[in-house]
Design a protein around this nucleic acid. Structure first.
Lengths: 215, 215
DNA sequence: CTAGTGACCATTTGGTAATATAGTCACAAT
DNA sequence: ATTGTGACTATATTACCAAATGGTCACTAG
């Protein structure tokens, strides 16, 4: 027996990345960097890609990269934000196709679960960033979570207006609770431990939630 | 850039530990080992405790330990099982104090969340075992989860009989869905990522679940 | 036969020196 | 001013080997 010492970190501190940007926001090279980063990160992973690799890929020196991005993480944030935005767009499209609020809610749940699941087992390399981002609570993730909550509230609002959903419980409370129900299925860190349930969960939980919403 | 290679394991394979036992099941030394293990694991942690440490503590050689336990993990399972059993007992007591099924459900949710939370931030060292056990799906954990589900079903049954809960939805489906709602709050691995919500979640989610159960 | 162990092996783990990487800066060329 | 860089430092990662650990087994004592 040697010395005492914890190992498992319970929850890392937030690193909200308040930096706005660096260098010209609209610049060809910035886009090239993002493109190269997207390719490299998704092929080799975030950790295994060095800033020098990206520099080589765009044909400039490493120092030049730092004229456009505060840090490697800032580049990661960009890629991650794009990735999350894609998921969001896809889900929103699926939701928009439905007429009834209840069906919208179902699609939202199912859509997020499947998209996140795909991230986890197909786009393995990109998942790595998403996991890091979620663990360290990067700004991109915080914003994403907020937008998800907004989408949820919109659906709830519509359902209430149409008279499909009950109106007694305060909207914010309902939204918060349903968000908590959904969270394990579109947060990569949590989904990782819910692999066995991704098939059944969206359907079963949507039904439960809808039962709780009946007027 | 070096070579490709994943790092994040998505979900480890189950190690159900089908071994029954080893050596005399009822034996003074076995109890001594368990006692020593409980102390050591909770003081220094599972990983930092060596089998030799336990041997020294009980005053025998390491080899003798293996007359009673298949492996170090088998000892960990024992401790873990005890720990989970304690949580369960505590929660069951709180549940039994309530009369109405709805209150029972609330207490069950709150009780498990608080107990698991305490495990996570007070009994840090024991948490380490629980986390390992949950990740590798040790038999003790699987059994625990099943007992939790059973308790849930009992409460639901009672609520249905008393007419407090709706009876249209199949019991198994209801139970499965509610279990999915609760899971993130008494699985240590999941709770770890829900630290920010442990205050609000049990109340809000219980309310949601109860709304879904209204006849 | 039961209680008990030292010596042993295959893997892990710990410590450490060498290497690689993130990030900065002064400066050059245009 | 804008575009671009090589050389530099502090920190993180790797590579390597010695020590520690999980686990077994043949064996002794009573």
């Amino acid at each position: 027996m040697t010395k005492t010492g914890g190992k498992l970190s319970p929850m890392k501190k937030a690193v909200p990345t308040p930096q706005p940007a660096r260098g010209p926001v609209d610049h060809e090279v910035r886009d090239q960097i993002i493109k190269a980063a997207t390719e490299h990160f998704s092929r080799y992973g975030y950790e295994k890609t060095t800033v020098s690799d990206l520099a080589k890929a765009v044909g400039f020196s490493k120092a030049y990269i730092y004229k456009f991005f505060e840090s490697k993480q800032a580049i990661g944030e960009m890629i991650c934000a794009n990735c999350l935005h894609e998921i969001e767009t896809e889900v929103k499209a699926a939701v928009a196709e439905a007429d009834q609020p209840s069906e919208k809610l179902r699609r939202m749940f199912k859509g997020f679960t499947e998209a996140t699941h795909r991230l986890l087992f197909s786009d393995r390399k990109l998942y790595e960033i998403a996991a890091t981002a979620a663990t360290e609570r990067w700004a991109a993730v915080v914003a994403y979570e907020e937008r998800v909550q907004t989408l949820l509230k919109e659906i709830l609002q519509e359902g209430r207006q149409k008279g499909d959903f009950e109106r007694k419980t305060p909207l914010d409370e309902t939204a918060a609770a349903i968000y908590l129900v959904m969270r394990p299925y579109f947060n990569p860190l949590l989904l990782q431990h819910s692999f066995d349930y991704t098939d059944m969960a969206p359907g079963q939980l949507s039904s439960l939630v809808l039962r709780s919403l009946s007027p």
